[in-house]
Amino acid sequence: MTNPRSVLVVGGGASGNAVTILLRRAGIAVDLIEAQPDWNATTGSGITLQGNALRVLRELDVWEQVNADGFPFGSLGVTAPDGTALFVSDDIRTGGDDLPATVGMQRPRLQQILIDAVRASGATVRLGTTAAALEQGSDGVFVRFSDGTENRYDLVIAADGINSATRAAIGITEKPEPTGMAIWRTPAPRPEGVTRTDLSYGGQAYIAGYCPTSENTIYAYVVEACRDRASIDPATYADEMRRLAQGYGGFWPEITEHITDPAKVNYTWFDQLLVEGSWHRGRIVLIGDAAHCCPPTLAQGAAMSLEDASVLSELLISGRPWDDELFQEYYERRIPRVQAVVEASVQLGQWQLDGVRDADVPGLIGRTMSLLKERP
Score class of each variant (00 low, 15 high):
residue 2 T to M: 15
residue 3 N to D: 15
residue 14 A to E: 12
residue 16 G to A: 05
residue 17 N to V: 02
residue 19 V to T: 04
residue 19 V to G: 08
residue 20 T to A: 10
residue 20 T to C: 12
residue 23 L to M: 04
residue 24 R to Y: 03
residue 27 G to K: 09
residue 29 A to Q: 11
residue 29 A to M: 07
residue 32 L to Q: 01
residue 33 I to H: 04
residue 45 S to H: 10
residue 47 I to F: 11
residue 48 T to L: 13
residue 49 L to V: 02
residue 52 N to V: 02
residue 54 L to F: 02
residue 55 R to F: 03
residue 55 R to L: 11
residue 59 E to Q: 07
residue 62 V to A: 07
residue 63 W to C: 03
residue 80 A to Q: 03
residue 84 T to S: 14
residue 87 F to K: 14
residue 89 S to E: 15
residue 90 D to Q: 14
residue 93 R to F: 09
residue 98 D to Q: 00
residue 103 V to L: 03
residue 109 R to P: 04
residue 114 L to N: 00
residue 117 A to R: 11
residue 128 G to Y: 12
residue 138 S to R: 12
residue 140 G to Q: 01
residue 143 V to F: 06
residue 144 R to F: 08
residue 145 F to T: 04
residue 154 D to P: 07
residue 155 L to D: 10
residue 156 V to T: 07
residue 157 I to A: 03
residue 161 G to M: 04
residue 161 G to P: 01
residue 162 I to W: 04
residue 162 I to R: 12
residue 164 S to M: 06
residue 173 T to V: 15
residue 174 E to M: 07
residue 176 P to T: 06
residue 177 E to Q: 15
residue 179 T to L: 09
residue 186 T to D: 10
residue 194 V to L: 15
residue 199 L to N: 09
residue 203 G to S: 02
residue 204 Q to A: 15
residue 208 A to V: 05
residue 212 P to F: 06
residue 214 S to C: 08
residue 216 N to E: 14
residue 217 T to R: 13
residue 218 I to W: 04
residue 222 V to H: 05
residue 226 C to L: 15
residue 226 C to Y: 12
residue 234 P to V: 07
residue 237 Y to M: 01
residue 239 D to V: 11
residue 242 R to P: 02
residue 244 L to Q: 12
residue 255 I to P: 00
residue 256 T to I: 06
residue 274 L to Y: 09
residue 274 L to M: 09
residue 276 E to P: 03
residue 277 G to S: 14
residue 281 R to Y: 12
residue 283 R to L: 08
residue 283 R to N: 13
residue 285 V to R: 01
residue 288 G to K: 10
residue 288 G to P: 00
residue 295 P to M: 00
residue 302 A to S: 13
residue 303 A to E: 10
residue 313 S to R: 00
residue 324 D to R: 13
residue 325 E to S: 14
residue 337 R to C: 11
residue 342 V to K: 06
residue 352 Q to P: 10
residue 359 A to E: 01
residue 359 A to F: 09
residue 361 V to R: 09
residue 362 P to H: 12
residue 364 L to T: 05
residue 366 G to V: 03
residue 370 S to T: 15
residue 370 S to P: 10
residue 371 L to T: 07
residue 375 R to M: 13
residue 376 P to S: 14
